[in-house]
Design a protein around this nucleic acid. Structure first.
Lengths: 208, 208
DNA sequence: CTTAACTTGTGAATTCGTTCACAAGCCGAG
DNA sequence: CTCGGCTTGTGAACGAATTCACAAGTTAAG
């Protein structure tokens, strides 16, 4: 990939794909950048610019073929294959994620959850086996998961992250409300509810 | 507030506050923008610029007083008061949120959860009462919650949002993987796990 | 009192992302 | 085949956010 693509662009591509799938299921054949923009709360120029980083997929005067563009976006986003996921931390958030249908739907296969709590080890979490965190390294060597989801308490997150990174996993989805340090070749995305809530608090406090 | 503050700035303030609380609990008195920056994965100039939008809180040659800056940030973020929160959708994600300690810790008080499922109504979700969504309007009039958290399926989210907006609630935290339309005076923050996962998929697919 | 070592606060410069504006291409009607 | 209505793709203009760079203030030591 020649140019570095902005994070915001990738997020929008993800949103476009969701609308396209909606359109696809309703049997629509083509869609214009304008229609796509309205659904995504952006502008048609933005949509065209986003897509232009990856090629030219439309037909002037006509718009985009819905199935073709959807296919291209899946390809760009790397959704053409199955990604193997492990969840670390079998608490409430881990459980909520384990049953989240969006994972499987998009090709994310949850292999297992890991925890240090003996009462949980050996149980099932929404059908997914809970294993002893002690066997993490061995399992990773064998199962080769691509993504680790961290749902551990904030004060353990960095330590667990370091351990996960050492196994060679290159993508982390972190739910701990902590800024994590990782090597440059490891991608960490953090979902921080506390931060979002404080953003709402700020908005409520500082409005004209 | 004179100038409009960027979303990214507010998120960083929120991160700075977290570090400051950590420093505070360790009894440290002052901190430099450089130290704050390292913890937050940013630069000292960024830290100073962020703070400069709201005033000048530091002492040249010395740095910032930890307790003072923490207090200022709490004030700026509107964390000096209690915010009343309702959760709409008593599923797994709702349950995970209901038990999340971060809410109470930061002054967010969860009043109730709402659901349409008779089996859930009247139960407790982590100690929080689950009420009939039918009585939403009446309850809001009485309890005056500030924030609504939406944990409903994607295809119902817009409908539920419209209903919530009509009650006069001005701040929404949305967990449905859907782009929502709301009036300009209502702040909507969306936490979209599907989007984050696809961001990871993209990163894994397109690396040098 | 002077000097050296630090650190803030902030205009200026730069980089990054979005929007504008329009030439180029496509389609259908006549 | 030509014209009018549409829509894409993309440089150029713009605007927003980040980084630079340095004067000004603070402290401690001599």
């Amino acid at each position: 990939m020649a140019k570095r693509i902005a994070d915001s662009t990738v997020r929008r591509l993800s949103a476009y794909l969701r609308f396209l799938e909606d359109f696809e299921s309703r049997g629509l054949e083509t869609i214009s950048s304008e229609e796509l923009a309205q659904r995504g709360g952006t502008t048609s120029a933005q949509v065209r610019k986003d897509l232009s980083f990856f090629g030219s997929f439309g037909k002037r005067g006509l718009g985009y073929s819905v199935p073709e563009l959807a296919g291209r976006l899946r390809e760009i986003l790397g959704l053409g294959r199955e990604w193997k996921v492990i969840i670390i931390g079998a608490g409430k958030i881990g459980a909520a994620l384990a049953q989240y249908r969006g994972f499987r739907q998009r090709g994310f296969l949850i292999l297992a959850a890991y925890d240090a709590n003996d009462a949980k080890i050996g149980q099932k979490l929404e059908g997914i086996p809970v294993r002893d965190i002690a066997q993490l390294e061995r399992d990773v060597k064998q199962d080769r998961p691509d993504i680790a989801v961290l749902t551990v308490p904030g004060d353990e997150a960095q330590k667990v992250l370091d351990r996960v990174v050492k196994t060679g996993i290159k993508a982390i989805l972190n739910f701990a409300p902590t800024q994590l340090q990782a090597p440059a070749d490891v991608t960490v995305k953090t979902v921080n509810m506390a931060m979002e809530l404080e953003g709402l608090s700020y908005a409520l406090t500082n409005r004209e």
